[in-house]
Amino acid sequence: MIVRVRNPSLAIGVTIVAAIAVAAILGPMLLRADPLSIDLASTLAGPSRAHPFGCDALGRDVLARVLSGARLSLSISTVVVAISLVVGSLIGATAALSGGRIDNLIMRGVDIVLAFPGILLAIALAAILGPGLIDLAIALTAMGWTGYARIVRGEVLTLRERDYVLAAESLGASRSRLLMRHLIPGVVGPLAVQATFGIGGIIGAEAALSFLGLGALPPTPSWGNMLDAGRAFLLVAPHLTTAPGLAIGLSILGFNLLGDGIAQKAGHRA
């Protein structure tokens, strides 16, 4: 019997994301190797029983570093997306509900931020704030909130014109009741999709900034700085770049499929 998966994107996405999350949470506990311990004797060693993904340029276990990098990537992207989502939604909702000049002012502000290429803005901010994880999160949030603001504003503006909202309004429902009962539930779907894509995007952006030396500081392993450090050894130790590269690719794929899946599901329901 052939099982027909109705939403393959969702299924694959959930599987990949769950696998990465489990590996990130449990992996470092199960693995004996320390991602920070340097062993100069096994510099650039290839994959072996003791080190399934080999060792890096300082003899550190690559698998342990990839797993530890997964923790960092997942936690940073979740935190950044959560903050961006809350901040962006509040700003978007404020703009939509205020209307008029305030709306105009806020949205032009959003346009200005959007006009900068996102990664460039993050680079500029990281350069000003100095490298480090907290600064990295601030930089990524600073470029990430605008998408949510626009979505929420757009959704709220359309929802406001819906008959059931107008009905509630004419029945004298308070502003906060309108927001909580009618508007917010309406924007949750699109926001969830955006947030899921957002996590994938932030994983990529974090890797890019760490690759440029603006993210996680050594010795903290991050996929981006592992790629960067491994680049010089492409010819003799390709495992140094393959492992974090695959991890980045797989996790972004996972989150994007998940986002697609959610969008499909939300679409069916509507």
Partner: peptide, 23 residues
Amino acid sequence: GARLGEVFQAMLQRVGIELTIRT
């Protein structure tokens, strides 16, 4: 020089000195 910096970082940590690396 970051790679060498990380080696120094690990070696100095053995005697209780913390090195932060600015690249």
